[in-house]
Amino acid sequence: MISSVLAARRNDGRAALIPYVTAGHPSADSTVPVLTALADAGADIIELGLPFSDPLADGPTIQRSSFTSLKNGTTVEGVLADLARFRAERDTPVVLFTYLNPLLRYGVDDFLTDAAKAGANGLLLTDLPFGADPQLEGAVAQSPLDFIRLVAPTTEADRIPEIAEGGSGFLYYISRTGVTGARTELRQDLAEEVEALRAHVGLPVAVGFGISTPEQAREVGAIADGVVVGSALVQILDEHGVEAGARFLAELRAALD
């Protein structure tokens, strides 16, 4: 599903737009309306964050949204139920974005089964790098979910083929060292790095971390198969609500089209 959407966008001659939102944020019952609004505003794939109490790969914006969500009573079960409700309405592929511990507690095999049943298409675990836990990685790889793996600017070249080998859907390139969060400028070397990465792997490459404006989205869209926008969107949802978030997404989409 994820790779066919990316292939279709490639045929259209544009990069896929991949927004990130945190489940249960800004309010307990906003997950389904937010997902639907994003799908209708032109999202090609959606990353849905399952909040964790200790989001150490995230910057202040997504940290705040995670804490708000947990205060709103968000649970793994609840997020999967919301996802199933969204899936009944829209086809837009969803990647669950989270940390390992909630899965371990839920039971990894049960989670993979239940998430697929709820309509998830992919899984991204920020704290499960390639090689960290072969057994667990094997379980995700064999599940119906695409295993979205990350490559960082610090990743050694000889690691990249191995990471790509174990992944599916797309490869997520972290645009800079650091945590998630909006930045005013993209790094100079980004185009070169993404080009090198795409030359080495068979998977489509999406770029994320720090992309916050339509101009940046256009710039990244010119070099990558997918553009991930997270913190900037989460902040707008936080401050101005769902409609404003959908308008922002439509602007990003217009910049890519």
């Binding site: 960082a152 610090t154 990471i163």
Partner: peptide, 14 residues
């Protein structure tokens, strides 16, 4: 034990 960290740190740990 193990190394459950973001990919960005793997090189530094190595």
């Amino acid at each position: 034990g193990g190394r459950y960290v973001p990919e960005t740190l793997i090189k530094a740990l190595d």
